[in-house]
Nucleic acid binder design. Structure first.
Lengths: 134, 134
DNA sequence: TGTCGTACTCTCTATTGGGAAGTAGCGACC
DNA sequence: GGTCGCTACTTCCCAATAGAGAGTACGACA
């Protein structure tokens, strides 16, 4: 089938790209931390285990779909553990593994940087926008 | 026009969400660091200034559009400086500001974590995939 | 005259993410 | 005994976003 050629080329290219990423650990982790919700979930779980519904309340703005998807990915990576309690309505709770907890200092350092430098960034933005507008 | 109602509701919700984010500095910064290319650009510029074409070669896989877009955002935030040399073909080079350099330790810590823990993550993934397949 | 190099910019298509509605399993209530 | 409600998802649809690749502006040089 000649019609598959373009799709094959794309897939091939994608695989090569993925293979390239696979050779660099920092890029692989980046794919994980680059997800907006990952860092928020990690901070939410910093103080101990949380249920699915608690997480979705804590992390205001996350859709159920994304929460589930991100949690699955993190479970797959061994960063958190999903445990099911077969109670009346089933309870599912999530907690960090030691590996997950080892990521907390990084999340914390991002938070600290933000708190220290956010006003400088705000000023820079205002200045830039004013310069562009003129 | 009744037809704009849905769009208005969406915009309204978006604004409320943005307002919510605005109150939390770590979320604002997250929007910045959460961008896949930001961390890569920061590492690329760690050793000094780079030209546009050098960056696009260093950061294999970035599209021109995304590179330009990300550089503009970082410039706006005061994280890097864009300087134009009006030579024969124009030269544009980018370098980190002190603010940008203050972000480097965070990028570095991500890299370090990755190098130390990537194999553990790989193992966890294999185990998870095997468990799901069975 | 035309083509080359740089740094974009534009357009079109593929992928991703959000919102809302649907599902499963079971207890409780009428 | 039917259906209502709870939790934790899952699915579908559509809008927003990312990426690929072609086009643009500029002046030098052959």
């Amino acid at each position: 089938m000649a019609t598959t050629t373009a799709a094959q080329r794309r897939r091939r290219a994608r695989e090569e790209y993925d293979a390239y990423l696979a050779t660099c650990p920092s890029r692989q982790l980046l794919d994980r931390l680059t997800d907006k919700w990952v860092t928020l979930i990690l901070s939410a779980l910093a103080d101990g285990e949380q249920r699915y519904s608690e997480l979705s309340r804590t992390i205001a703005g996350v859709s159920q779909k994304m929460l589930t998807q991100t949690l699955r990915n993190l479970e797959r990576d061994g960063i958190l553990i999903r445990s099911i309690t077969p109670a009346v309505p089933v309870r599912v709770s999530y907690q960090l593994t030691p590996l997950g907890r080892s990521l907390l200092p990084i999340v914390q350092s991002i938070k600290d940087w933000a708190e220290q430098h956010m006003s400088v960034v705000q000023d820079a933005r205002s200045r830039y926008d004013a310069a562009v507008a003129s």
